[in-house]
């Protein structure tokens, strides 16, 4: 019998990190239950957190962190040239994430505040997701990156198929798990317009959604703001809540 959808060879993968807390990469090392199964299918050729070697080309490059300096731009171009498939790992890489909050202020002010009189040594750019500079094939969202989504993307790539890109909101996963809505517990939650794929992990443990996976396609942001203010936030608080992870994609959401 021919094995027509099962993978035939190991894929060469590499990990890189840009401006980030490296939490996503550590999260990946936390895949203890799965890591041996994963290693059956891959050959890791570059992973700073776990090894020192370097390679010339990769089937899949997983990249964590935002682009925020001119050096980052050069490096990401170099990685893109050597990677058949490039996957953004975690919010910083996929949507700009927390880093992009700095974009809401003039870049020179930010540089001054952070580096003081040494600022001339540290050129800086507005924080950007990888897709602002290079073509990104797939994204694994979340802060830190969502393990269920990582496994989903990983398995798909190992099988040579396109991973599913979730575009429904977190509410769907909450309802499938029959969670009590956090709005009914007096909280405000960004689940209604945040991209699912995390299995509603935060609401399932009583923590409201902070929007770390980015907004769904075509989000009705004004309606979401109304929801937040109707449930007790001031307009300013509501805007801040939405911008926490989504400053890059939606910098002028509320102007």
């Amino acid at each position: 019998m021919t094995t027509q959808t099962a993978p035939k060879t190991k894929i060469k993968i590499a990990y890189f990190d840009f401006t980030s807390c490296e939490g996503c990469q550590l999260n990946k090392l936390n895949l203890e239950n799965h890591i041996l199964d994963l290693l059956e299918h891959v050959e890791i050729v570059e992973f700073r957190e776990a090894m020192d070697d370097k390679a010339d080309s990769y089937d899949v490059a997983f990249i964590e962190g935002s682009i925020s300096t001119p050096t980052c731009v050069e490096r990401i171009h170099d990685i893109r040239r050597r990677a058949k498939i490039l996957v953004a790992l975690g919010s910083c890489a996929s949507i700009g994430g927390i880093n992009a909050m700095k974009n809401l202020q003039p870049i020179e002010d930010v540089r001054e505040i952070v580096y003081g009189e040494d600022k001339y040594l540290f050129p800086t750019l507005p924080a950007m997701p990888l897709s602002a500079i290079v073509k990104v094939d797939y994204e694994i969202h979340g802060c830190p990156m969502s393990i269920p989504e990582f496994l989903q993307v990983f398995k798909a790539l190992a099988m040579g198929k396109a991973p599913i890109k979730p575009d429904s909101p977190v509410c769907v996963e909450c309802k499938l798990r029959e969670n009590e809505c956090l709005f009914d517990r007096g909280m405000v939650c960004l689940g209604p317009i945040t991209r699912s794929g995390c299995d509603a992990i935060c609401p399932s443990f009583g923590q409201f959604c902070t929007g770390c996976r980015g907004l769904v396609p075509n989000p009705n942001k004004n309606a979401m703001l109304d929801i937040l203010t109707d449930h007790g936030l001031s307009l300013q608080e509501a805007e801040k809540r939405l911008l926490l992870f989504n400053s890059y994609q939606h910098p002028d959401t509320f102007k």
Binding site: T2, Q4, G160, K161
Partner: peptide
């Protein structure tokens, strides 16, 4: 789509 992409890789004799 996903299925048709994979279908294109199949050969005679496969199921």
């Amino acid at each position: 789509g996903m299925l048709t992409e994979k279908l294109h890789q199949l050969e005679i004799g496969q199921k």
